[in-house]
Amino acid sequence: MALAKSLKPLECYGEPPAGVDTANLSGKLIVIEGADAVGRSTQIVQLRQWLEHEGHAVLDTGMARSALAGKGIARAKEGNTLGPVTMTLYYATDFADRLENEIIPALRAGFIVLTDRYIFSIMARAIARGEDPAWIENVCGFGLVPHAVYYLKARVKDLVSRVVIGKGAFDYWESGMDYHFGADMYESFVHYQTKLIGALDKMSSRYGFTEIDARKSPGEIFSELRGHITELNIRKVNGAARPVPIPAPKSRRAAIA
């Protein structure tokens, strides 16, 4: 996959999933990537509202939300026995289920698929835990090349303040406590997130991410994202030519109908 960047959108990075027809997909696949607590889901909520207002059908999806493996992953994370390879492959299973049963059918139907993280986060977590990058990249090779990957790039110290101010506590898995990267959760968080960010930064040039400075305000980030997505030239509906301000919930419902 040395030429990952030169692949066309909706081609597979490696071998396509067995028995799945990936031809004639007419939708758009848009990925939001970034470390934990960087503000991805806030953006996805707003992007969805905006895109639906514009008349586009949107599917939003994210890690560990598959019908097949979502619950299993949640259960496994409650215990204290989830090893790094097992975790990686559980997430890969979850991703494959969503890709084959949600993402590809939606793309075939012409939807815009907004995904909160993608194979890149699965790979980054594996690499941060010392797994071989070539191994996990090959495992995830059945993934489709997105039209765009927006990488909300932050420094570790920004994440720390977001976690402490926003959530008030460090999360076990976000701190990489399964690997005890540090003496306590803070130290482990810093070391683990540094490794994660390092892995994502490396992927950024390799896979052609569009980097967005996550230190900006949510509003600024949103308009930046909107500008980028507009450039993707998604088919217009009923002359809704220009990006509109974030619509109120009522008008969103009207747009869906």
């Binding site: 999933p17 067995a18 028995g19 799945v20 019908a67 097949l68 493996a69 619950k71 299993g72 259960r75 496994a76 215990g79 026995t81 989830l82 090893g83 390879v85 097992t86 990686t88 492959l89 559980y90 890969a92 299973t93 494959a96 289920d97 084959e100 049963n101 059945f142």
Partner: peptide
Amino acid sequence: LVRQTTRRGKKKEMFTPTTFSLIHATDFAD
């Protein structure tokens, strides 16, 4: 750790060749 997922997938016939392969690899990894 994986048993319930596999059982669910089999019972509801949810597996594709890829997810069948991956869930067994997950089981093996554990």
